[in-house]
Design a protein around this nucleic acid. Sequence first.
DNA 1: TGAATTTAGTAAAACGTTTTACGTTATCTC
DNA 2: GAGATAACGTAAAACGTTTTACTAAATTCA
Lengths: 334, 334
Amino acid sequence: MKTLSIKDIAVQANVSITTVSFIINGKAKEKSISEAVIEKVEKIIEESGYKPNQIARSLRTGNSNIIGLIIEDISNSFFSRIARLIEDKAYKRGYKIIYSSTENSVDKAKELINMFKSRKVDAYIISPIKGIEEDINMLLTDNKPVILFDRNLPNVDTNYVGADHFNASYQSIESFIKQGKKNIALVTTDIDVQQITERYDGYKKALEDNGITYSDDLVVKIHFNQEEAETISQIKTLLESKKIDAVLFATNYLAISGLKVLKQINKKIGDEFAVIAYDDHEAFELHTPSISTVQQPLEEIAETVIKLILSQLSSKTKLENQQVIIPAKLIIRD
Amino acid sequence: MKTLSIKDIAVQANVSITTVSFIINGKAKEKSISEAVIEKVEKIIEESGYKPNQIARSLRTGNSNIIGLIIEDISNSFFSRIARLIEDKAYKRGYKIIYSSTENSVDKAKELINMFKSRKVDAYIISPIKGIEEDINMLLTDNKPVILFDRNLPNVDTNYVGADHFNASYQSIESFIKQGKKNIALVTTDIDVQQITERYDGYKKALEDNGITYSDDLVVKIHFNQEEAETISQIKTLLESKKIDAVLFATNYLAISGLKVLKQINKKIGDEFAVIAYDDHEAFELHTPSISTVQQPLEEIAETVIKLILSQLSSKTKLENQQVIIPAKLIIRD
DNA sequence: TGAATTTAGTAAAACGTTTTACGTTATCTC
DNA sequence: GAGATAACGTAAAACGTTTTACTAAATTCA
């Protein structure tokens, strides 16, 4: 069964292809097609179930109604929740999402950008990594809307939406200090992206401002792509050997590993020892005791990203770039 | 900056478009293009950074190297983990994934299938819902490979990959019974999909086989799209009022809500009261005490799905449909 | 009434590829 | 040395749309 084309409809309705095209695209009035013809054609389209070939459309118009979403890892709940929200909102406005995970590999990220480019996606939503600045700049010279989120790139001049990582981290540490904690550790990753370094900077600054000397011994940087067993053993070393009385985990998956360690070594969270995790996770609320977390405003981030994209897509002229920083919320539990 | 086309390359190399096309597609040898020309053209392509326009390619060839993935909800960790695995494996074989969530809406599912169709995706991976049988059958008459996973549709004759939900459920209940439990509840959803009814049937059969009378009072079916607060209150009613000594939760998100209830009403899991959750979740291992779960073989499911897809895509003839049922694993914790 | 305008519609080019069918020359075979 | 084959390559159609520039008839206007 050959699939129908606009030509088949035209033949059946005994009008030209052009006329059908105008009707499909809602330009019938403007192009002064008579009511009678419009109805006839629409009826045929309806009955035959004809659907325009989007590929041909894209080839001709140069756009696709598709937005490309590039994230670190769709199986991380932070990203999958954001993806769902973005998908949802985009869908309501007639846009589809293609997504892919970079797994923090520069090569894969570059490849993804290329693939999206050759598929003519209309806009890009990227949670970027260092090393792809040039590729992004090429998109920008192509006049494609690009929104970075979660992490910013210093050398790229475009839109950015993200949480205020520095202050969230700062406040977390301050809350530890107010509880009288003195030996506050930080478990973070070694990937060199802005939102991670901000969390680190917030940690450091909060200590300084409160007269606590920063010590490298209390910070462990976990290698991104390693096995969880390795991560667990590194965190275990930290938590066992030191007289640490509080820990901030810089990502939710590090916190998960950390909680596993605490269970293994039977170290209890309570008055003697406090924990805060960055990025909420269902496990944290359920944990006994509940784990305090820094909640990113997912809904707001997604909404802002989509709003920026759409306003750019609908505007003829290049809009002013925007940097939207949304406060994160420290949720103290138990 | 206009983007380069194959024509620009041809002009620059002073050969025909055809020749460039043959070289790009590795048909140079076969079409007896000389080594010299090949090298020249490849050099120009390399230097200019030319990338073929996939849209034009798709229009001409009728396929896209894209696989469409339709799932219930990308923010559910079961699906996001499967998606990540599938994406990964597809990517290694040169295929990209477009995904979208149905949110269990028949209309949205139909729309998605249409959109994928008009984008000429090469194959479909679908975690289906009732009501889209006809749409899927149309894909099949179009000779597109379709793999259903997680849930099967009785009236659709195609490939299926999923876990053995009936037995997993049966075994869970049996393990309760072996522990001496008598009043075993089931918390499930009201969506009418195969993998959910199988879990229900396994529950019922295990009770029967062990001489325990089934009671409707011990089963609560949660409406799919409702607010979590509502869900929690329904589960609370169940767990508070009955002398229940064990519960099987039929999905991970129901189990999460259930655990929240237990925390609220301060009911402890232990010798007196046992819990098993379907589909693992990070929260379960961390929970105190750890929660036993039915683990689906994600890796195997993803691998099998991709294997089936690829063998169909590379085969000229229609292959025999396969139904792959993979055992799930009951993990008893603590 | 005849020029101008409006109404109703169409032909054909263009988007960037792949692929079929064909055209030269050079080489081989006997 | 003539016919066949191989080597090297190309022109042009086709994929299914959108859009520009156009035409022919009907209506309006003064």
